[in-house]
Design a binder for these strands. Structure first.
Lengths: 198, 198
DNA sequence: TAATTATATTACACTGTGTAAATTTAGTCC
DNA sequence: GGACTAAATTTACACAGTGTAATATAATTA
């Protein structure tokens, strides 16, 4: 997560970290549109001009942060432990890992995903989850099952990935009233209707 | 929709309509954060100061617009034709009406729901859909069915309403490749697993 | 037509933006 | 550890946008 590129100056790492931390802090206190470069620099205890040495503007900074978020999550759900043990329906432990990771960094994810008006992040995560849902739809025998019921493949994917991201966001907003494991199991139940039905 | 309150001045109605139209226009051309009161007033061909006679700032204007949107949609899904004929699972024609209404005003809804960074609107609609999902969960026998499967009531609601709004948004983003009727049927299929299973 | 009320005009103080140039500070690498 | 290098700071500037106030003008309603 904060693994620095060997050839990057420590100062760069430090000020970027301070800027990102300040951003999350401010987001806990106010809406995005109220976050100015002025406030951000002040909170991060860096000079305002220094901000522009790293990011073009605040939307640019948010995009960079979203990139990093996606990188982190990708490494979680693409990691060896997740893709475990050659089991064909692999989605179960994968979802647990994902939810546990989010829960572990819930301060960040709550403010970034579950706060109003920070769509860049949700957009990106939705995209990631869509590819995930698509992939596992192809892998399992669910695809033929839903086809047999007259459900369009793409609609099923839209439906499934929207349901996932939306539920995760609401779960975060409600301060995670269920454990990651429990929620992952619930997702499995909600999904496995299909297979059971066929 | 543009039914004016009898005691409101025609000029008020006119400038508000011009402002809202200008807002939608600008949103088609740029991100929300680039929309300034300056640009808005210029596009609406009104004086900048006049804007402040109607709204506190742009977020305030967006909230007011969201209020109106919810009012409109509520009247659609709460109308006599929708709540038709005492049928116990009433959700089917209701969803057709909703999707048809959105399709009819798709220029507005596409930009307002399916464009980046306009979360106020999606938030409100999600809320509305959540109450809808809750209501019909209570009405039908789905509730006992999902309980029997070990699925938590609130999680099922989060899941279902997120799936609905997310699918509608993606449907809009893709320029409505299916008819409202077809999509409504697909929703019914995706939902009725539950009843069928039990 | 008169009274009312919305809109336009002009002006002002203020906050924020993005860039430039010169200077200081601190990390890197030998 | 010291020289080199690159990042951060400082100061300054031109500009865009905000929100409010006071006054003048136009349109609507009764």
């Amino acid at each position: 997560m904060d693994q620095a590129n060997p050839r990057t100056d420590l100062r760069i790492v430090r000020t970027r970290r301070m800027l990102r931390d300040a951003f999350v802090e401010l987001l806990e206190e106010m809406e995005v549109e109220k976050i100015t470069v002025n406030r951000l620099a002040e909170r991060a205890t860096i000079n305002r001009v220094t901000f522009y040495l790293h990011y073009r503007d605040i939307p640019d900074m948010m995009e960079k942060m979203a990139d990093e978020m996606i990188e982190d999550i990708s490494s979680i759900i693409g990691s060896p432990e997740s893709q475990s043990a050659a089991s064909p329906d692999v989605e179960w432990p994968l979802m647990v890992n994902l939810l546990e990771y989010i829960a572990k960094h819930s301060r960040f994810y709550k403010v970034i995903l579950a706060t109003k008006r920070t769509t860049v992040f949700t957009e990106r995560l939705l995209k990631l989850l869509t590819s995930l849902v698509t992939e596992r739809l192809e892998r399992s025998d669910t695809e033929s099952a839903i086809a047999a019921m007259g459900i369009k493949r793409d609609i099923a994917i839209w439906y499934g990935s929207s349901a996932l991201i939306g539920t995760i966001i609401t779960w975060l907003r409600n301060d995670m009233p269920y454990t990651p494991l429990f929620l992952a199991k619930q997702f499995a139940l909600l999904r496995h209707y299909h297979q059971m039905k066929s």
